[in-house]
Design a binder for these strands. Structure first.
Length: 293
DNA sequence: AAGCGAACCTGGCTGC
DNA sequence: TGCAGCCAGGTTCGCT
């Protein structure tokens, strides 16, 4: 469940379990996910108190008392669930109609509060690693990341200057994590629809000749914030069988205007368009050819 | 330099 | 029912 709103939803679910608690035991069930785990992964985690659980773009960052940061990325198919450690395991779960899919449980963190968090990731595009807090910002993983879309820097002026002279389509420019960090395929499609902008429009066309932002740039900045905030309020989007950390489902997918809505009528007032799917740089783009220009 | 396709993996769905 | 083919929320590498 991996764009910014889903990662933020995960953070909200894990923070009460992790913050202020001690990691008592770590089960690392394979040597690697997307990358190998550090050799000393377990020993650097066990016995550590988690100070805070934060988020940067699509990365979860658990600050440890040792000064290390546990960096976690969900990739395409990663998810966390919270379970009771002590009791249960016994019959209780027997009533649940759905058998838990534990096949791809790769990491389990046990906490002093009697709970455990389980990381499951069928495709293994996610990863976990440890980086000292002091060197985090300089690390290659973060040094080239763009701005936080929900921070105070995203506005028309930022977009017009970041996109100036770019011929690349808006779709690709918005997916570029080096400009804005945290948007993915769903929310880029949704934001462009809200702004009435074509995914194919050259990114550079949001900048006026004098370098100042066009009205479209201002609108786009605003709807990006709106769509992310709306999605976070909804607990993110749930595709396929993914769930939040407590097993409940996000429901923003019921609000999609264009994503995964090919052949559906456009919902914009007065628009009679039909949503189309196309491929841009290898990924599906959904848009309304009638009202997005 | 920018921009595109391919690669990394597994699983679910569609259509023959 | 079986199986091939396509598709999936991300990121990075390597080739024009």
């Amino acid at each position: 469940m991996p764009e910014l709103p889903e990662v933020e939803t995960v953070r909200n679910g894990l923070a009460p379990v992790m913050e202020g608690d001690v990691i008592t035991r770590v089960e690392q069930r394979r040597p690697d996910l997307r990358f190998p785990f550090p050799d000393d992964f377990r020993t650097r985690l066990e016995g550590q108190t988690v100070a805070t659980l934060g988020r940067r773009a699509k990365y979860l960052l658990a600050d440890l008392a040792s000064g290390d940061v546990l960096v976690m990325h969900l990739g395409m198919s990663g998810s966390f669930r919270v379970e009771e450690d002590a009791a249960s395991e016994t019959p209780g779960d027997f009533h649940h109609p759905k058998t838990k899919n534990t096949k791809h449980d790769h990491v389990v963190l046990h906490f002093s509060n009697g709970k455990r968090i389980v990381y499951n990731d069928p495709r293994r595009f996610g990863f976990m690693t440890l980086i000292p807090r002091a060197t985090l910002d300089a690390h290659a993983m973060f040094s080239k990341l763009g701005i936080e879309p929900l921070g105070n820097r995203l506005d028309g002026t930022f977009l017009s200057s970041a996109f100036a002279n770019k011929k690349t389509p808006l779709k690709a420019a918005l997916l570029d994590q080096g400009i804005i960090a945290g948007l993915g395929n769903i929310y880029v499609c949704e934001a462009l629809w809200r702004a009435g902008l074509s995914p194919k429009r050259a990114a550079g066309t949001l900048t006026r000749k004098d370098g100042r932002p066009t009205a479209r740039a201002e609108t786009l900045a605003q709807v990006i914030r709106d769509v992310l905030n709306d999605a976070i309020k909804a607990g993110g989007s749930t595709l396929r069988d993914h769930a939040q950390t407590d097993g409940s489902l996000g429901y923003f997918q019921h609000t999609f205007a264009v994503y995964d809505q090919e052949h559906e009528p456009c919902h914009r007032d007065g628009c009679r368009g039909i949503i189309e799917r196309m491929t841009q740089s290898g990924r599906s783009t959904f848009h309304c050819p009638q009202c997005q220009h």
